[in-house]
């Protein structure tokens, strides 16, 4: 894929955003929107990483984020549960409405946000403790008083890992294979039943079989959760995402600023992209 295909001038990009915002929301019933991310500007220090990206995320659907490397998909995703607060110099301008409340409001505790909006990362990152304790981690954190074993089993089943690990729950989580570790991380994230699950390229370290397992899993998960997923794999976006947001990089103002080009129902977006940029990108991917 040509890098130039995704870069654009300021005028077209502003139009693009305006239109994207329009199409993005028009398709969705406002009632169904669990999370409404309205990022005006996202900075790392002085560096403007993302601008003008309005990404509504619908309940019980999978929203896919696609776009070239460095266009700010991870930045936007991690802004949604305030993971980026860990990075010195990070600033978010805009609003993220979660059930009508802005999570960037001063009164909101980022810890509470993260407990409600779970995250699965690109690299599997289980803790160096037993499989059981990994899954129970969030439950203990939230002082869960009920039947721990039952919840752990449910989460492991939910992550399609139970049969593989049921006889070795005491083994260290790090002793599992990469794909199993990633599913363990998913189990850990869903054990506390957060309302939203964010996934940043969850399959990039996995082989095709494990990838398919996790994709099937996501489709099951959306019945109970709202899911947002970053992916570099267009086929994956087509297979699992209900809505898709396409981001690109704008180099016109000297920086390399990412922004949302357009967003819509996945079938619509792939079959009938509104923007030239999207067409070029998808064309590059599929030709």
């Amino acid at each position: 894929m040509e890098a130039t295909a995704t870069e654009t001038t300021a005028e077209t990009s502003i139009e693009a955003v305006a239109q994207a915002t329009a199409t993005g929301t028009a398709d969705l019933d406002p009632e169904a929107i669990t999370l409404d991310c309205q990022a005006e500007k996202i900075f790392y220090g002085d560096f403007l990483a993302v601008r003008d990206s309005h990404v509504p995320i619908a309940r019980n659907q999978i929203t896919g984020f696609i776009g070239p490397s460095g266009c700010g998909k991870s930045t936007v995703l991690k802004s949604i549960n305030r993971m980026n607060d860990l990075i010195p110099g990070f600033r978010f301008m805009g609003k993220v409405y979660f059930h009508g409340m802005d999570i960037y409001d001063k009164k909101v505790d980022p810890v509470a946000v993260r407990r409600n909006i779970g995250m699965v990362f690109q690299q599997p990152n289980p803790f160096s403790m037993s499989i059981y304790e990994n899954v129970a981690f969030g439950l203990r954190l939230n002082r869960f008083k009920g039947n721990m074993d039952e919840k752990v089993e449910k989460a492991l089943r939910g992550a399609a890992l139970w049969d593989e690990v049921k006889d070795k729950l005491k083994n260290n989580g790090l002793s599992l294979s990469g794909g199993q570790q990633q599913r363990l991380c998913i189990a850990r994230a869903i054990a506390t039943e957060p309302r939203v699950l964010l996934m940043d390229e969850p399959c990039s370290a996995l082989d095709p079989i494990a990838t398919r397992q996790i994709e099937e899993l996501m489709v099951q998960l959306k019945e109970r959760f709202t899911v947002a997923i970053v992916t570099h794999n267009m086929q994956q976006a087509m297979r699992v995402a209900d809505q898709t947001a396409f981001f690109a990089v704008d180099i016109s103002r000297g920086g390399r600023t990412g922004y949302l080009v357009e967003m819509g129902a996945t079938k619509e977006l792939f079959a009938n992209p509104q923007e030239q940029l999207t067409k070029d990108y998808l064309h590059g991917e599929f030709s």
Binding site: F121, P126, G138
Partner: peptide, 15 residues
């Protein structure tokens, strides 16, 4: 400790 472990911890909503 790898940064990804720190991220995982805070991502679970730990103080």
């Amino acid at each position: 400790i790898p940064h990804k472990i720190t991220e995982a911890a805070y991502g679970m909503g730990t103080t």
